[in-house]
Write a protein that binds this DNA or RNA. Structure first.
Lengths: 237, 237
DNA sequence: TCTTCCAAAGTTGTCTGACAACCTGCCGGC
DNA sequence: GCCGGCAGGTTGTCAGACAACTTTGGAAGA
């Protein structure tokens, strides 16, 4: 079940306070609600509130003064986006990150179809051929696959897409190799050929300037990938 | 050294553990001492230990597993995702971030339509009514609007969505107030009513369990928002 | 009236004890 | 040998208490 997001109460409080600070409702120098107010309004114990505040302090978003209160730091600057990913984390965490990746890539395919230049389409197609070459020589083509997706993200003309994709990749990609190793060679070949068909459909949508089709193809592709991973998660449990 | 007048016991424990991890004495995957061991060896209460571990978790250095223990993360030096924080950044940068937000929110609406619980739908609807109330009393409803979008992200059941949205919000939200101030009251009223219609369509899609419609409604909503912002960018150039 | 001081209330920091939720490994029955 | 359940260990959460410190208001004195 992917619904187990209630694993940590402190994280909820943390997310809420963090959002209020980053959203600007709590300005630098403002005082946070007291621990007692937070316990009553959020319905949690003081222990939970204190852990959330400790995390905020570790992130540099707030400073606390004993006897006075907790205050928003002067510079709640671009405190970064992190993903608590680890080999010991739950498989559900990986699935959650993969869903985020799906969201970004689907829309990236759409933007790419709307704005692609001739040169960018060439890069995407070259990446597709590069995967083909790797497969024919019996390689895993993990790096080539990643390059293909990055080429699409770059074809959006929005640098944030490839940047974010690269960030997510560092948390998701290492797992993919696991799956390949458990299949038989025959299964693996069928699987990889199907992947290439899905890739080709994405490329066609982008090259034809059809954002709806490009998005649909990318969504299908990544949804299947998610499903495969989800089944693996169930199987290895 | 570091043991100078740090008025905070938790910070001492944090510094010690952090040094052991970064120094390599605790390798990735290793299990930390249990909370009870730490309380006795460091001579502090469990409260202090837990706050220190919460800070380590916020830093991404450790992950905890209930019933098992706390473990050093696989990649303690994983570089987080940052968005080039140019305080007076160009409007184009904001547009790029808004497109990333669009991607995440469109898919979030889809997942929310697929997985929403009755309670979550209630929260989303309540957020919509909250915007209504704010508008009728002549407020800007910026905070309520953000809460509405966050409620949808939470209805996905995937905690990464609200987390990422909160992160992006810090880079986009502050600008929105600019636009409202340049419209005449009449224009503003028309605009806000239209926004609410778009919101209602999104809610309907989610409540009906129709992910395609939910995504389309959210995409229309955010695309229009992007277009408005883009026109503003051109006009003020 | 103005200043100074102090007491009380409020707030964070820390300790203690308890129970719930969950994981792990052992042990006995089969 | 295999399997299931049970007991112990571990983190997550709650509740109450006291210590350390800040803030604020008013009383006392000039």
């Amino acid at each position: 079940m992917a619904d187990n997001r209630s694993s940590n109460l402190a994280e909820k409080v943390l997310a809420r306070l963090s959002a209020e600070i980053r959203g600007g409702r709590l300005a630098p120098g403002d005082r946070l609600p007291t621990e007692q107010e937070l316990t009553s309004t959020m319905g949690v114990s003081r222990t939970v509130v204190r852990e959330a505040v400790a995390a905020l302090r570790a992130d540099g978003l707030v400073v606390t003064r004993r006897g006075s209160g907790a205050y928003v730091a002067d510079n709640p600057t671009a405190s970064p986006f992190r993903i608590a990913a680890s080999p010991l984390g739950r498989l559900g965490d990986v699935l959650n990150v993969m869903e985020l990746r799906l969201a970004v890539e689907v829309e990236a395919a759409g933007f790419a179809a709307e704005r692609r230049t001739r040169r960018q389409v060439g890069v995407v197609k070259a990446a597709l051929r590069s995967i083909d070459r790797a497969l024919k020589s019996g390689e895993g083509a993990v790096a080539e696959d990643f390059a293909f997706h990055r080429a699409i993200a770059e074809a959006t003309g929005n640098a944030q897409f490839p940047r974010f994709l690269a960030f997510l990749g560092s948390h998701v990609i290492p797992r993919q190799s696991v799956r390949l190793s458990v299949d038989t060679p025959a299964e693996r070949r069928t699987y990889l050929e199907r992947i290439q068909q899905e890739h080709a459909r994405i490329v066609a949508g982008i090259a034809n300037g059809d954002p709806v089709e490009a998005r649909r193809a990318m969504r299908d592709h990544l949804t299947r990938s998610l499903e495969r991973y989800r089944r693996l998660a169930e199987g290895s449990k």
